[in-house]
């Protein structure tokens, strides 16, 4: 496993998270998984070197990925949105100017889409 590319994966559904995690490992990058905003922010703070991220929009307990997205933007870390809640989250989706992949989608395509946005150096290392 090459440590160059760290991909933050945020999803409140463990099985989807695991699927994304496997897909990230297949691409030989290091998945950092989070099931809520707190965990995701902790990853961003702690490692300080998240290369890119896949964010589920609607999370448990009424949370959305908004705080995570804003923090990533502040640090100029690219991310994509991965959501099945297109009707209710129109506002959130519009506020975040990021690529959206509608669920259900192929996990490796989702991960590839995020990796393609990562720093060229990181993705070269990862591939």
């Amino acid at each position: 496993m090459i440590d160059g590319c760290r991909i933050l994966l945020l999803d409140d559904e463990p099985l989807i998270l695991m699927d994304l995690e496997f897909a990230a490992e297949d691409r030989e990058c290091r998945p950092l998984t989070a099931t809520n905003v707190r965990e995701a922010l902790a990853h961003i703070e702690a490692q300080g070197s998240v290369s890119c991220a896949v964010l589920d929009v609607t999370l448990r307990d009424g949370e959305t990925c908004m705080p995570v997205a804003r923090e990533l933007e502040r640090r100029e870390i690219p991310y994509i949105l991965h959501s099945g809640d297109l009707n209710r989250q129109e506002g959130t989706l519009a506020a975040l100017n990021a690529r959206l992949i509608a669920k259900p989608a192929c996990s490796s395509k989702v991960v590839d889409a995020a990796l393609s946005l990562a720093e060229p150096a990181a993705s070269r290392q990862a591939s």
């Binding site: 559904e13 099985l15 989807i16 695991m18 699927d19 496997f22 897909a23 609607t58 099945g84 809640d85 009707n87 209710r88 509608a102 669920k103 259900p104 989608a105 192929c106 996990s107």
Partner: peptide
């Protein structure tokens, strides 16, 4: 939302 999530979960199970 639940239906789409369920499709995602099914797909996750199949992948794993």
């Amino acid at each position: 939302h639940r239906i789409k999530n369920m499709f995602s979960v099914i797909s996750g199970i199949v992948n794993v």
